Amino acid sequence: MAMIAQVAAQQLTVPESIPELAARAGWTIEATLAAGAGHTRHRAPVGVSQIELICDAISRLGLDPALVRSARWLICAQAVPWRAMPTNAATVHARLELPPSVQSSDINASCLSFLAALQLIGPSVDASGCPALVASSEDPLMALDWSEPHSAALFGAGAAAAWVVPDRIPQRGETLLAIKTQLIESHTETSEACVIRGGGTKDLFGADGYGKFSMNGKALFQAASRHMDCFIERFVSLGGVEPACADWVVAHQASREAIELMRRRLKISPDRMPVRFEEFGNQVSASIPEGLASLCRSGQLRHGDRILVLGTGAGLLIGATELAVVSAKT
Rank of each mutant, 00 (worst) to 15 (best):
S110V: 14
L301T: 01
T321I: 13
A161I: 09
E52L: 01
S151I: 08
V46D: 07
A5K: 15
Q10G: 14
G122A: 15
V134M: 06
L316M: 07
A109W: 04
E189P: 00
R302M: 08
A314N: 01
A328L: 05
L74P: 02
L53T: 03
H150R: 14
F277P: 03
N282V: 00
Q171A: 15
P170G: 14
R226I: 05
H227L: 12
P243L: 13
A160P: 08
S101H: 12
V46E: 07
A31S: 10
A89L: 08
E233A: 15
I184T: 13
A94T: 05
I121C: 11
L53D: 00
Q119R: 12
N216F: 05
A116S: 14
P99Y: 10
E242N: 11
P15G: 07
H93C: 05
G36P: 03
S186D: 09
S17E: 06
G291S: 02
L292P: 04
G173K: 13
R297Y: 02
S214I: 09
E185W: 07
A157H: 03
R306H: 07
I58D: 06
A153Q: 06
L133E: 09
A66Q: 06
D229Y: 10
L183E: 10
T175K: 09
N216V: 04
D106W: 08
E138D: 09
G206P: 08
T312Q: 04
S124A: 14
H39G: 02
G47E: 00
I196Y: 05
R263G: 08
I4R: 08
A90L: 09
P81T: 08
G122P: 10
S49K: 02
L238F: 12
G217P: 03
A244G: 09
V284Q: 03
A35N: 03
H252T: 09
G291I: 00
M215L: 15
A127M: 11
V164K: 07
A254T: 13
C76K: 00
P99F: 10
T312P: 00
R197K: 15
N88R: 03
T40A: 03
D305P: 01
I29W: 00
A223Q: 13
T87L: 09
Q300I: 00
T321V: 15
V236K: 14
E279W: 01
V309N: 02
R60H: 14
A89V: 04
S101G: 13
G47H: 02
E52N: 02
E148G: 01
A77T: 04
S237Q: 15
V195A: 11
L96Q: 03
G239C: 14
I307S: 04
T181Y: 10
F235M: 13
C76E: 01
I318V: 07
L67H: 07
Q10T: 10
P274V: 12
L317I: 01
L177V: 10
A293D: 02
V68F: 02
